[in-house]
Design a binder for these strands. Structure first.
Lengths: 269, 269
DNA sequence: CCTTTGGTTCCGAATAGTGAAACTAATATT
DNA sequence: AATATTAGTTTCACTATTCGGAACCAAAGG
């Protein structure tokens, strides 16, 4: 389930190493990295050193281990607050969660994966950093399918073959063909269902967040368990979801022009 | 207050551009970046393109703007959960905040700055992603001074001249000399005080988190207002703080060896 | 003492990055 | 309508970085 990026250029190589270190999920020694690295010893060594001096990795002298550097956390804070839908969506997610009493997700696409940017859990109302930033598969989650369905054709064609199509449950759509058919349906209805595709007992409805120009910006979903509710009941919440989605979209549109730069009037072309 | 990194090598240059884009705090057009960039047009252009294809930036075709890419959020999630003190410290921070009823911070150094990794606010008990990742000055915050005081001499000498020494309040220590003196005190007492150095009315006590080998790993603090409490009362909480700090340190130590790799026994050299 | 394992350094060859300048596509100006 | 200006993109000869095989070093194991 690792992201395979076309790592051209020097930065690409460096980042692929960074990703690899991240994938270990613990501090690693030089040899651990070397073992499944496409790079020869000397090259890898230099790349790691570079990453350390750039602050993307930290090197623990005592243990001779590399781990991800705090500089990333700082960058991500900026990324989260400015580039994504997350900050503008926040109040709407809260409202949705209070109105429905269910779990809410906000996600965007990161390459072929779904990246969760925010989450509201109805029970303990707490959103932690450790929740945002998680990745999941696109082909078998509500938000994933909702987003794929509204992607431009060329991008979709690039992403579909990159899905793993692993069978998680009996309901998982395990082939590109099956998925394409489902996406067609979703496009028609305007919303996606997760019929326990990913986890047994977990169901959800999701809608895309579309800009004024019908560009897909992300997706939001309401998740529950098949024990507590049913797909039918969830479908009744679709209007609320769509409402929230369009509010988020317009909020995001405005949010780009706090006061300076191009004026909102100019948008009306 | 911008971080000036020695951007040698190709990745360094790319990252400096990334930082620059981040510093705008809004989507930017090519020319905005060009205007105060050390790089010539063509070079900057290519660097930006690289960053986009690497997913560190996203390019909005409609508006022709660059903003930080979601890939950073994913990386930061890994960074937060694995490289930093944050995950192991979490339960201890919660405990502290419940015991004292005050605001708790966990911070590490990111170059010359303080980077906040977690926060517990006593009132509305909510920790949001948008809180972690914030940066602040080191020379005039409790956590900052606590960390500087326990830094190895050579590192300290590199970092001290990089502080801005801006006067925020009458109590701010505005010179390297004044700061050095204070650090001496802190080293003696084992804890740092923020006597409204940074914000009027805001006071705090902070202690460093030190590893078994006395390496400085971060700092934690209890913050309050001068209206609600006093420095004297805060000082009474130092033992609790130090307790938490040492628990965090040992937890972090163990956390490095979930099961595999070097065994804990080997640590006893 | 020799060998193995893990990590670091060298240096010529190969590659990727550089940036002045030319070009295009949109406004704005005369 | 013709021209100037501004913003963004492409080209290409030049050059600085990066690459990586091989040699080297240091510590642990026999």
């Amino acid at each position: 389930m690792e992201t395979e990026r076309k790592s051209s250029g020097t930065v690409g190589k460096a980042l692929s190493v960074l990703d690899q270190v991240a994938s270990f999920e613990r501090p690693v020694r030089f040899n651990d990295v070397l073992e499944d690295s496409p790079f020869p010893k000397a090259t890898l060594y230099r790349i790691l050193q570079n990453l350390v001096t750039e602050g993307l990795l930290t090197f623990d002298r005592e243990w001779q281990t590399y781990s991800l550097g705090v500089r990333l956390v700082r960058l991500a804070h900026s990324a989260w607050t400015q580039s994504s839908l997350a900050p503008v969506a926040r109040p709407h997610l809260t409202a949705l969660s209070e109105a429905t009493g269910e779990t809410i997700h906000l996600a965007q696409l990161d390459g072929p994966h779904v990246l969760y940017l925010d989450k509201r859990d109805a029970k303990r109302r707490i959103t932690m950093f450790s929740e945002a930033g998680k990745v999941g598969p696109a082909y078998c989650t509500g938000v994933g399918k909702a987003m794929l369905a509204f992607l431009p054709k060329d991008e979709l064609e690039r992403i579909l073959p990159q899905q793993s199509y692993h069978r998680f449950t009996p309901a998982t759509l395990c082939s590109q063909q099956a998925l394409t058919g489902e996406l067609e349906q979703i496009r028609e209805h305007g919303f996606a269902l997760d019929r326990e595709d990913h986890e047994p007992g977990i169901i959800c409805v999701a809608v895309p967040v579309l800009s004024r120009t019908k560009q897909m910006m992300g997706a939001i979903s309401i998740t529950s368990t098949s024990a507590r509710t049913s797909l039918g009941k969830l479908e009744k919440l679709v209007p609320d979801l769509q409402n929230a989605a369009s509010e988020i979209a317009t909020a995001a549109e405005y949010w780009r022009f706090p006061d300076n730069q191009r004026t909102p009037e100019k948008m009306e072309i």
